[in-house]
Simulated assay, not measured.
Amino acid sequence: MTKRLLILGGTEFLGRATAEAALAGGWEVTVFHRGTHAPPAGARELRGDRTEPDGLAALAQTTERWDAVVDTWSAAPGAVRDSARLLADRAERYVYVSTCSVYAWPRPAGTGTEAPLVEGDPDSTASTDYPGDKRGAELAAVREFGADRTVLARAGLILGPYENIGRLPWWLTRIERGGTVAAPGPRGLPLQYIDARDLARWLLDAADQALSGPYDLVSPGGHTTMEELLEACVRVTGSTASLRWVSPEAVEAAGVEPWTELPVWCPPGELHDAMHRADVTRTLESGLRCRPVGETVADTWAWLVSIGGVPPRREGRPSPGLTPEREADLLKS
C-alpha cells in the first residue's frame, strides 16, 4: 500500500529535501505551504498561511488522511498546536523537526536527550526566542498527538543542497574567490552536523518504524573536522585559495564572532561542547546514516553553481560570514 505523507512546508531546504526523498521512496506527498516557492515535481499542494486566522482552511476542508506529518515550523508554538490538533484524528504520526537549542545552555559535552531543557509555552501565539518557541512547539505536538505518536527530531547544524541559511555556501563562495582565506583552527577540531538529505531520510524512516520521543539529529562525534570541511571546499571549487590557519586566541583577539562571522566554527570550550559534542548513540541505533563530508560539500557546490552561485536567504535571518575587511583584519592578527 502506498504511504501518504503531509509536509507542513516542503518547498525550502529541509522540507524540500524531505519531499524529494519521500517522492523518490514511493510516498504520495502533499505539501501545505504559502505558495512563495514551487513544490517539488510530483507533490500535491495545499495552500495556506499558518499565521492567519483561517490559515488552515485548506487542510480543514479536505477529508484526506496521512500516515505521517512532518512539520518544520520555527516560530510561535501556537501554529504547531493548531495544526496538530486539526490533524490528530487524520494522521498516524506527527514528526516535528525541533532543534538541539531546546537544551538549557550550556549543554554539557557528551549528553544526549537526557540533558535539561528550556521552558516553552505550547499555547503561545507570539514568537519569543528560538529555543523557547521550539520547545513550546514540541510540547504542543506531544499534547495533541500523544507521546506515543510524536517524534521530536532535535536537529543540530544542518548543511547540504538548498541551504537557505548560508553557512556552507559562504565558505564555498569565499574559497572559490581565491586568495588567502582565514581558516579558524585548530585544524583537527571535530564537527557535528547533518546533511539535510540524511535527516530527511531519517524522518521518513522514523515514521515508517513508528518511532516516538526525542532524538538528537547530528552526525557522530568526529564525523569530520574543520580541516576536512575546508579542504573539501577547496577541492570541489577547483580554487587556488590558500588556507591560513588562525588560532582561536587570534580570532578572539580580533573580535570575530564564532558561528556567525565564521560559520560552522566554534572555539574549543563551552560553545564547542554544546554545538559539536552531543551523544547521538540513541539516534545511531535507530538507523541514522551520515554520508561523507566530501559528498555534502560537492553536492552543495553543484547546487550553488546550478542556481548561479547566489544562495537563497531565509526571511529574517542575517547573512553569515566575514566581510573582506574583517577577514583582512583577522589575517593581520
Rank of each mutant, 00 (worst) to 15 (best):
T2I: 09
F13G: 04
A19C: 10
A22M: 13
W27L: 11
E28R: 15
T30P: 10
V31Q: 13
H33E: 04
G35S: 13
T36D: 15
H37P: 01
R47Q: 11
D49G: 06
E52W: 15
P53K: 09
A58P: 08
A60L: 04
A60R: 00
A60S: 12
T62F: 00
E64V: 14
E64A: 05
V69P: 02
T72R: 06
A76E: 08
P77R: 06
G78L: 11
A79K: 08
R81Y: 06
D82G: 12
R85L: 07
L86A: 00
E92K: 09
C100G: 08
A104W: 00
R107T: 05
G110P: 03
G110T: 00
T113Q: 14
P122V: 07
T125N: 14
S127Y: 15
P131A: 01
E144K: 13
E144S: 05
F145N: 00
R149V: 00
T150G: 10
L159D: 05
E163C: 03
I165C: 10
P169K: 01
W171I: 01
L172W: 03
R174T: 03
A183D: 11
G185F: 14
P186Q: 06
R187E: 07
R187W: 00
I194R: 02
I194N: 01
A206V: 10
A210V: 02
V218C: 09
M226D: 11
T240E: 08
R244F: 06
W245F: 14
E261I: 06
L271K: 03
D273N: 07
D273T: 04
A278M: 13
A278R: 09
L284W: 13
S286G: 14
P292E: 15
V297G: 02
W303T: 11
S306H: 10
V310C: 07
V310E: 11
P311C: 00
P311L: 03
P311G: 02
G321K: 14
L331K: 06
K332L: 15
